[in-house]
């Protein structure tokens, strides 16, 4: 199987200043180029995420949010620099080690990335594939305890009633909730969410975001989530990182002293000419896929 572009391991600088086990994610001078160097998607990004933190990454489209998140579970490999996730350097892992890392790192996609033809429970059960050996042709091939676990996860996202329905008969918000249940089924330590609500309408976006973060807090999961919506970001984050053209331009804790206006100002700094205002102001622009 191919997992993204092959990596040329360039300069790897490691700062071993922190004791292992404290940080869930450590990114050091991460550089990623596409089209043999023509496009520089990430340009020297460094940050550390302590365990249990709810980090939201904001930025305009094309600022490198997705690329950054995809480095953290090995869907992309760095051109330069390193990404250390749960004390493992992602680019130096063998395929087997990468698979076991992925088990601990859930990923929620903007386009849900569930198999529409399968039933909800089958999609949720596929979250357990990393724990077991060999393919499973039907839901009945998973153990009974796994099936009841999957039902419990569906219960948490409020879809236990629809467990045996085909997933493509569900609405967009419900499909994303199935995807969240699949991620929770993995029992991850970290959840990476790449614009999880960008293809949903604003009201549903709020509900799905609430659900995602609530479940992660309950299970003590570290969250790295990229978002368009400043409001949602402020509601759920402990910390905010702003990206522009592959560089970090904002890194601030979120507390009472941070007002929405402060962040909006930062957003306008991200976009001084105001050419992309519609992306973060007009709700109708981001509501439909």
């Amino acid at each position: 199987m191919k997992f993204g572009k092959s990596a040329s391991s360039g300069v790897v600088r490691q700062e071993n200043s922190t004791t292992p086990g404290v940080n869930a994610v450590e990114v050091t001078d991460l550089v990623k180029t596409f089209d043999s160097g023509k496009i520089r998607a990430l340009d020297g990004v460094s940050f550390k995420v302590p365990k249990g933190q709810l980090l939201v990454i904001i930025g305009l489209s094309g600022s490198g949010k997705s690329t950054l998140l995809r480095h953290l579970n090995g869907l992309h490999l760095p051109t330069e620099g390193s990404a250390i996730v749960l004390d493992e350097n992602v680019s130096s892992l063998s395929r087997k080690e990468l698979r076991s890392l992925r088990r601990d790192v859930g990923f929620v996609f903007q386009q849900f990335n569930i198999v529409g033809r399968l039933t909800c429970i089958e999609n949720v059960l596929s979250g357990a594939l990393g724990r077991i050996w060999g393919p499973r042709i039907s839901a009945l091939m998973y153990s009974k305890s796994m099936r009841s676990e999957a039902i419990e996860q569906l219960e948490r996202v409020g879809l236990a009633d629809k467990a045996w329905q085909r997933t493509d008969t569900l609405s967009g918000g419900e499909q994303q909730r199935v995807a969240i249940a699949r991620t929770l089924m993995q029992k991850p330590q970290i959840v990476l969410a790449d614009e999880p609500v960008a293809s949903l309408d604003p009201e549903i976006s709020g509900q799905v975001m609430d659900l995602l973060v609530q479940c992660c807090i309950e299970d003590g999961i570290t969250v790295l989530c990229s978002l368009h919506q400043v409001d949602l970001a402020l509601g759920w984050a402990n910390r905010l990182i702003g990206l522009r053209a592959g560089k970090i331009v904002l890194d601030t804790p979120v507390d009472e002293s941070l007002s929405q206006e402060d962040v909006m100002v930062v957003y306008q700094q991200l976009d001084p000419e105001g050419t992309k205002t519609s992306e973060y102001l007009d709700t109708s622009e981001t509501s439909s896929p």
Partner: peptide, 11 residues
Amino acid sequence: GPREGVIATGA
């Protein structure tokens, strides 16, 4: 897309 979703679970 869905394939990536499956790979991301560590399958």
